Amino acid sequence: MKNVVFLASLLLSTAALADGKPNVVILATGGTIAGAGAGVANSATYQAAKVPVDKLIAGVPELASLAQVRGEQVFQIASESFTDAHLVTLGKRVAALARQPDVDGIVITHGTDTLEESAFFLNLVLKTDKPVVLVGSMRPGTAMSADGMLNLYNAVAVAAAKDARAKGVLVTLNDEIHTGRDVSKAANLRTDAFKSPWGPLGMIVEGKTYWFRSPAKRHTTASEFDIDQLDRLAPVEIAYGAGNASPTAYKAFAEGGARAVIHAGTGNGSVSSAVVPTLQALRGQGVQIIRSSRVVGGGFVLRNAEQPDDKYDWVVAHDLNPQKARILAAVALTRTGDTKALQRMFMEY
């Protein structure tokens, strides 16, 4: 079997050299981009993760004009069912492919619900400057005005582009290129669903990339984290702040073994007076308390504003939303439990 895989890789590399096209591997994980509805009018009602990767590729024959493309089915799930174990498995497979000299770029098809979390995780732990691009769709391929075909075409165009190297893990939807660090799903029924609070990095037009800014935060080859040194992530949970807040969820998460709780606070990561004593007590028991904000669209949590973080030995998530803060905490806590070190990481990544 290994000889067959080696031969296939050798043939792919030889073919690519012959026509000068880069080699791009598409790793499929499921999601809406692989979904199917009962009819063409079903754009929001459908079953995700139905179409295998070979059919996705065959459905966009224009990919051959961009690169030598081959596919691999890693998972076939809806992304809301992604676990930390899935993240580690995916990360290790991407890292292995990135080390191959006959692989120039990698595309990952992914459900949009947790695409931003997977993108940020990979941005933290991959040690490669090759383009790694996550892509999804907001409508299944069976729907009128389905967006998956063009999104996939654009993703391969970015993965094949030399100017996409060393920019970290990227996300492409709706003709835009985003950094996996910033981007989040901001709508659930429109094709322009993905937004970055600080704006996209660039655009793709007719298969060509146009860049307008570069990521400022640490990522990939500049990261202190490495997927090859990770077998599991630390357990981290998110508790949502709201009016009439109670400490029930925080206590339950701690009792369930969470090493950190992300507080998805109102405004500037504010914490209800009814919850503060519980968070102080949990920190005294060794649970990290990380203040994030549930606010959508920009801004960041200021340290020692709203709450005396230095006094309580808490961490602020800076501009990371709660779900991205969970990812960074889950990775960071595999290396350190020191609050100051964690705060440094939240400022640098």
Rank of each mutant, 00 (worst) to 15 (best):
G337N: 14
A58K: 12
K92Y: 00
V315M: 04
S65C: 03
S270M: 04
G111R: 11
K92M: 00
L7C: 01
L12K: 14
I327L: 05
S145F: 15
E348F: 00
T334Q: 15
N154G: 11
L115R: 09
A64T: 09
S246Y: 00
A78V: 12
A18L: 14
D54Q: 14
A16K: 03
K130N: 06
T266Q: 09
F82S: 01
D310I: 01
A258Y: 05
P308E: 08
E224W: 00
A38V: 15
V94K: 03
R190V: 15
T89V: 12
V69C: 07
R294W: 08
L11T: 08
Y46E: 04
Q285A: 11
N3E: 13
R259D: 07
S13A: 09
V25C: 11
I327K: 04
G265C: 06
A161H: 07
R213Q: 13
Q76F: 05
T221I: 14
L150E: 13
L10M: 09
N154V: 02
L10V: 02
L87S: 04
E80V: 04
D228W: 02
L66M: 07
H110Q: 15
K251H: 08
M203E: 12
R283K: 15
M144D: 03
M138H: 05
D113R: 07
I106E: 11
F300E: 11
R335V: 04
N174A: 14
R181K: 09
L124I: 06
A187R: 15
K167P: 00
L11G: 01
L173H: 04
N154S: 12
G269P: 05
M149D: 12
E80C: 01
G111D: 12
W314L: 01
A166K: 13
P247T: 05
L230Y: 03
L7A: 10
A48R: 12
F120N: 08
T89L: 10
N42T: 12
V5G: 01
P101F: 09
A34Y: 02
T221H: 04
R213C: 06
A187P: 01
V133P: 02
T339H: 03
A44Y: 04
I262K: 05
D147N: 10
Q288G: 00
V158S: 05
E206S: 11
Q307L: 13
F194V: 10
L97A: 06
M144H: 07
D192T: 06
R218I: 15
S184L: 10
T209I: 13
R181N: 07
E237T: 13
A239P: 03
D54N: 15
F212T: 13
T142E: 08
N304Q: 03
A249Y: 10
D54K: 14
L279F: 13
L10R: 14
E117K: 13
K162W: 00
L230K: 08
G20K: 09
V74R: 07
L134A: 09
G337L: 01
K2L: 11
S214L: 07
L189V: 13
S65D: 15
I238K: 04
T172V: 15
R283H: 13
F300H: 14
